[in-house]
Design a protein around this nucleic acid. Structure first.
Lengths: 251, 251
DNA sequence: CGCACGTTTGAGCACCATCAACTATAGTGG
DNA sequence: CCACTATAGTTGATGGTGCTCAAACGTGCG
């Protein structure tokens, strides 16, 4: 999977590029949302570098000390926690404009690991600087509180999914969520590529990889989607939403 | 259950009591953690009132506008979200020293409802004031970021529980978590009263109430705990922890 | 090309949900 | 005070959903 896999050390390459939130296409999705140009410039002085992470490589691992947060600029990440006995729980998939490392603020240690699922690029945001800056820019502070809160709301959604939904409902919810997030970023909401394996989807949804595979096959039989390897095409969006509302409607 | 149940209107009574974080036994668990006495005084000026909530009554409901956060001073709350089709997912149980309403910061609307499971008392913290104050008190800002982050970590723990654990493992984890939190507050970690019903435990753990009941019975048969109605006594803590580590060890 | 990995599909089974009957407890009113 | 009711909890029998084990296939990379 990784063409440099013979080298076991971390593959993160650091590039000191000028970071310009003001010219970033993600500024309406990301931390700078709603800042004026002066404030955005101040934020840029703090975000000193971009980091490239190759597919399959970790940006950080659970247990690492946290000094910075990261904003995904390009690419796709999987976040996961490990239980003491070594089982993995995927806690989320982050795409462009989303922040990585929010969980680590509480203990200054990453509780999740972040692994790139495709060649990716992130903006590094030293947390101490962000904290300091957010004291001087009220709307930045407010944004950041909201980002943290939104993550809590998202997690509650996942809890609902894991606690109350059946396998195919979870899978439909997952596809619809991805679709919506791609749409927000200007990509097709109808047709996209899954960057993660069936096993990773399963871990996220509390299911086994076989169940994911069967679910996709079933949706395809029913004409809801077309699956070819990791390519997904949504053929019947309303019907897919219908699967979801069958949650407890017993339908 | 509620001695005023013939009166259907909301039972929240507002008392303008002087709030004194500095003399509150929870200050080491709650928002004021690590503030000096001057800073704590400033925080007190913002926390203008305490609110009493009777058992069974909501402090707020999902969909309500959020203007304040609340710190539990006394009592026990259940937080829950409802899916469109009306199913409830309990997202957590909050006890003294824990904050309510963090999820609502993102949209300024409560996404969870909070219901008191016993007669309770909370300190109301107007969010705009907290935001403003946190700009002037760095350690308060830092505390609050950490509180939000800790909630995210907690939610990841629940996701692990719902995604990877079997029924009895979930139940053991639940009991151990409660035990630990009671201990932190100076109560017995060995013997406590469950404020929630079996159904509410089930909703939180992604299980049905019958499964909870069977789990308790089984733990009792095995001599791990003693159950009498809502009273729980932990008889064999190591064995209960053992149940947990059996997570995927197949034991 | 050929190996490794991810995926698909099938068969059988375990776990937990469901349905149902019964018990216990607390609160209500005669 | 004691029936009466409503709510919560226990326990048993049964079945379905999703897990497990297993085998085969496809794809892509070395």
């Amino acid at each position: 999977m990784n063409h440099t896999s013979t080298i076991p050390i971390q593959e993160v390459s650091l590039k000191h590029l000028k970071v310009a939130c003001s010219s970033c296409s993600l500024r309406e999705l990301c931390l700078p949302l709603g800042l004026n140009s002066d404030e955005m410039n101040q934020l840029e002085t703090v975000i000193t570098q971009r980091v490239k992470v190759k597919k399959g490589e970790p940006l950080y691992r659970a247990g690492d000390a946290m000094r910075s947060l990261f904003a995904v600029r390009l690419g796709f990440f999987k976040m996961s926690v490990l239980s003491e006995d070594g089982r993995e729980q995927v806690t989320g998939f982050q795409m462009a404009g989303e922040l990585l490392g929010l969980d680590a603020i509480s203990t200054e240690t990453h509780s999740c690991g972040a692994i790139a699922l495709e060649d990716s690029e992130v903006c590094e945001i030293p947390f101490a600087d962000l904290e300091e800056l957010s004291r001087h820019i009220p709307s930045l502070q407010n944004n950041f509180y909201k980002v943290l809160s939104r993550e809590i709301v998202r997690d509650h959604g996942v809890m609902m999914l894991l606690g109350n939904m059946k396998a195919e409902e979870r899978l439909a919810a997952f596809l619809l969520n991805l679709s919506q997030r791609f749409a927000l970023r200007g990509y097709s909401s109808r047709s996209f590529v899954l960057r993660m394996t069936r096993e990773e989807i399963g871990s996220y949804l509390g299911l086994k990889l076989e169940t994911i595979s069967r679910g996709f096959s079933r949706f395809q039989e029913q004409g809801l989607i077309r699956v070819h390897n990791k390519e997904i095409e949504i053929l019947d969006l309303p019907a897919l939403k219908q699967v979801l509302s069958g949650c407890s409607g017993k339908a």
